[in-house]
Structures are given as structure tokens and as C-alpha cells.
Design a binder for these strands. Structure first.
Lengths: 150, 150
DNA sequence: TCCATTGCTTAGCAATGTAAACTATATCGC
DNA sequence: GCGATATAGTTTACATTGCTAAGCAATGGA
């Protein structure tokens, strides 16, 4: 019983705070020159986690057409390039450019700084509590558990 | 020194996890029939926190025109109604309808349940760590601190 | 009464997301 | 090898959410 009721109570507490966090973070980082999604895609490309449109779409949890459009905008901005995959000419290989790498570094700093500014208000106990919650966040986001839960 | 460097380290850890959390939550709740912003606005209206477009825009941290459009869509959906303020005929008073209340309750459950499903994977130590982080989140989101920080 | 301010809307634009339909290439079964 | 089918990506058409700039009507002070 408690195992069922308890996550629900926690979720009721967490949900509105997450909602506010999203709004706030968007506002704080509006001037960063790059959106959250684009930054994440650049990061994935940079770490070599994916090159195909389909893979990127899965990583970002959006549809293939959304990723096509996203990559097109980023290509127009000069941050990535598209090349036909020589081994499977239906597909493309997306890679990050030098400008893309610079944009990623600058954008990431922008996001981290905005967050750090807010975290700077916390006392060490509060920061500690957030640090200790990181592992739980990872578990919440774990894709393995996601599939098992189905 | 440490007071400056330390929030930054924490922010680097937190930022990508928050980013993923946003994507994941959006996907999880795609079938809830209502968007996060609309749900929050309905909640504010229901708790009587605001009735004017300007107030709602401030609460949600969006511009007045954005709120006008948002309210128009919600009015078209039948969840809220607009009335001219009899005391200041420039302004309007937005109120939630019966249908809006039902939609809020259903939508909220949808969001909370989606989150609870993920939290259900955690063990009690992990859940405890999240519960303890709630206060820190509140401090991070505190508007008072926001103004002081300027 | 004049004029600045306030509250909201309209217009025009960009980014992000969807589903459905299309094109081109690969691959499977015979 | 060939026809059917699957896969990768794009295009099209649309909705939502956000912005800025400009406009309009009501308010209220000098």
C-alpha cells in the first residue's frame, strides 16, 4: 500500500515545483543564444552519442520530422553539417562543426551560470540536499527502468 | 572563493539532468490533454491567486500578449471565461468554469501519476533524498531572492 | 480638457512539436 | 533477379507557445 501511496504524495509535491523550475529556467536562459533542445543535440553530437536523425530523435524523445526540422535550423546556423551515409544512402550523418563546438561551450556556460546564480542563494545544507538528490534523479531518468516499467 | 566555485559545480551536475527531466516529463504527459502552462494557469485561477491577465502573465513569467493568447485558447476550450472588470473597464476578470475545474483535476492527476510512476522505481533512500531537496527547490525558485539578486 | 499611463488585444514572426503522405534506398523471400 | 515490404528522411499542413511592436480604449492626474 505504502509503496504505492508514497510516490504519489512525493509526486504531488514535486510536480508543481518542477513546473515552476521549467518556466524559470527558460526565462533565465532566454538570452543564451541557443535553446535547451539545440544545446542537448549539440552535446550528443559532440560526445559522439549519435549521428543519425533517427538516433538523435530517439535521444531527444521527439519524432523524426521534428528532428529533421531542428537539424535544418542548426545547419542553417552553421553549427552542424549533414552528409549522406555512404553505407546506407537513405540515411544521413550529422556532424558538429567548429562553430557548433564553440556555440555548445558558450551555450552550456550560459545555462550553467544561470542555474549557478540561483544555487548561489542556497546555504550549504540546501546545496548538500540537492547534491544528494542527483542519484535519485538519475534513477528517475534511467531508460532501462523505463522499458521495464512498461 | 568556494562559495562561488561550489554552486557552479553543482549547477554543472544539475543542468543536464534538469534538461532531460523536462524532455521526459513532456513525453510522459503528452496524453494528459492539457499543457503544463495551461494546467498551471487553471491552478492559479482555481486557488484564486489571480484573475487579471497581467497578474496571470506575471505569475507565469510570460508577456501580456502571450497570456492573452493563452487565455483565448483556454476560453475557446471552455475552461475559462473572460468578463470585463466593472470597476476598471480596461481590464478583464478571468474565471475558471466547471469544465475547467474538471479539466484541472484530470490534468493534474495525469501529471502527478506520470511522475509517481517514475518515482515508484526509487527505493526509500532515494525518495527520501528527493523529499529533502524540496526546500532547496523552493529557495531556488523564491521570487524574493530573485529581486534581491538583481 | 489634455495627455500620460495602464490594460489588453492585434499583427507578424520564430521555434518547437505533431501526423500523414511522399521519395528514395535496402532488404527479404522466392 | 524481382516484386513486395521495410526503413530513413523529408515535405506539408497544422497547433501551441513564446516574442516584439503597434494600436485602442479607459483611467486619472495636472
Amino acid at each position: 500500500m505504502d509503496q504505492i501511496e508514497e510516490p504519489n504524495r512525493l509526486a504531488s509535491e514535486l510536480a508543481p515545483r518542477l513546473a515552476r523550475m521549467i518556466t524559470t529556467l527558460r526565462r533565465d536562459t532566454a538570452s543564451a543564444g541557443i535553446s535547451r533542445v539545440q544545446l542537448t543535440v549539440l552535446g550528443a553530437l559532440r560526445r559522439g552519442e549519435a549521428r543519425r536523425i533517427t538516433e538523435l530523435a530517439e535521444l531527444e524523445q521527439v519524432t523524426q520530422p521534428s528532428m529533421t526540422a531542428l537539424i535544418s535550423r542548426m545547419e542553417r546556423a552553421g553549427w552542424v553539417v549533414r552528409e549522406r551515409d555512404p553505407f546506407d544512402r537513405r540515411g544521413v550523418q550529422v556532424s558538429i562543426t567548429e562553430a557548433g563546438i564553440r556555440q555548445f561551450d558558450a551555450g552550456l556556460s550560459g545555462y550553467v551560470d544561470a542555474l549557478a546564480k540561483r544555487l548561489g542563494r542556497l546555504n550549504s545544507v540546501q546545496r548538500q540536499s540537492l547534491r544528494r538528490a542527483l542519484a535519485a534523479l538519475d534513477a528517475v531518468l534511467d531508460e532501462q527502468g523505463e522499458r521495464l516499467a512498461q
